[in-house]
């Protein structure tokens, strides 16, 4: 009896190690394929135009996604957080490396990241931030790492990419728009450009306009862009505000009517 148990134990261990090697090889092969040919399940932002139109089905785990934007409040961080939440739903933790010390965790919870699986790291220097991102990406129990860098070297980005590929995690790196000309080690590089709403004062709509440019993607032709409306659920507007909107719209129409009839 003991002999049989020992034999099954050995077989299971061998089977486990083989399975692990096969998984590792599969991940590496997928890392060489174009995004459109990857068969493994993808992460989606939940915005169809981005997921289907721009990224051919979503973003695979085990790589970097660069989000470029040139101003605060552009919407890039919100999209990155949606991806982080999608990654965490598959199991694993989210690590936020917040060098600026301004990240607001309740919004991560609002996006669906489990508070029990969120780790906030506030490094004192840029070097520490880079080290923390690398360590987190290299940990196979971390599903997503979110970090913003005003400046980061290509060497550091390459190290991030290797760490993410090895662990199967997702690195969400936010950089300024000026980084668009630097070498891209990420699986996808996106530029987020916020657009003002076409009708000023139209607060009845809660959506915001964003134009997303695909600057680089593995195995895909860059240069495409889509314009999306991102719905941001807000608190309901008070009735008197809606009335004011209507009165303002009426007032805007009145001179035109006068011109026609005058």
């Amino acid at each position: 009896m003991n002999t049989i148990a020992h034999a099954s134990h050995t077989a299971s261990l061998a089977e486990l190690s083989v399975r692990r090697i096969v998984e590792e090889l599969r991940r590496r092969v997928e890392g060489l394929r174009p995004l459109s040919q990857i068969e493994s399940p993808r992460l989606q932002t939940g915005i169809r135009e981005i997921d289907e139109g721009l990224l051919s089905g979503g973003i695979p785990m085990g790589g970097l996604v660069e989000w470029l934007s040139d101003r605060p409040g552009s919407g890039a961080e919100d999209l990155a957080l949606r991806l982080a939440a999608a990654a965490c739903r598959r199991g694993g933790a989210a690590v936020i490396v917040d060098g600026a010390g301004t990240f607001y965790p309740p919004v991560a919870f609002q996006r669906g990241i489990d508070p029990a699986q969120l780790l906030l790291v506030r490094p004192a220097s840029r070097q520490d931030a880079i080290w923390a991102v690398y360590q987190s990406l290299a940990d196979e129990n971390v599903a997503a790492v979110f970090a913003a860098f005003p400046r980061v070297s290509d060497i550091a980005m390459r190290r991030f990419q290797l760490a993410a590929e090895k662990s199967g995690g997702l690195g969400l790196i936010l950089r300024p728009e000026a980084a668009r000309h630097s070498p891209c080690w990420a699986a996808v590089r996106l530029l987020v450009e916020p657009r003002p709403w076409p009708r000023p004062g139209d607060t009845l709509s809660e959506a915001r306009r964003l134009r997303i440019h695909l600057l680089a993607a593995r195995g895909m032709i860059p240069g495409r862009s889509v314009e999306v409306l991102v719905h941001e659920p807000t608190y309901p507007l008070p009735d008197h505000w809606r009335l004011a909107e209507r009165l303002r719209a009426d007032a805007a129409r009145r001179p035109q009517q006068n011109r026609v009839w005058g």
Partner: peptide, 20 residues
């Protein structure tokens, strides 16, 4: 996951690795 936390806390300081 605990190993990662230990490494981060050791290098960056325990007060910089936070649970919100």
């Amino acid at each position: 996951w605990g190993r990662l936390v230990e490494r981060l806390a050791a290098r960056l300081g325990e007060e910089r690795v936070l649970q919100p």
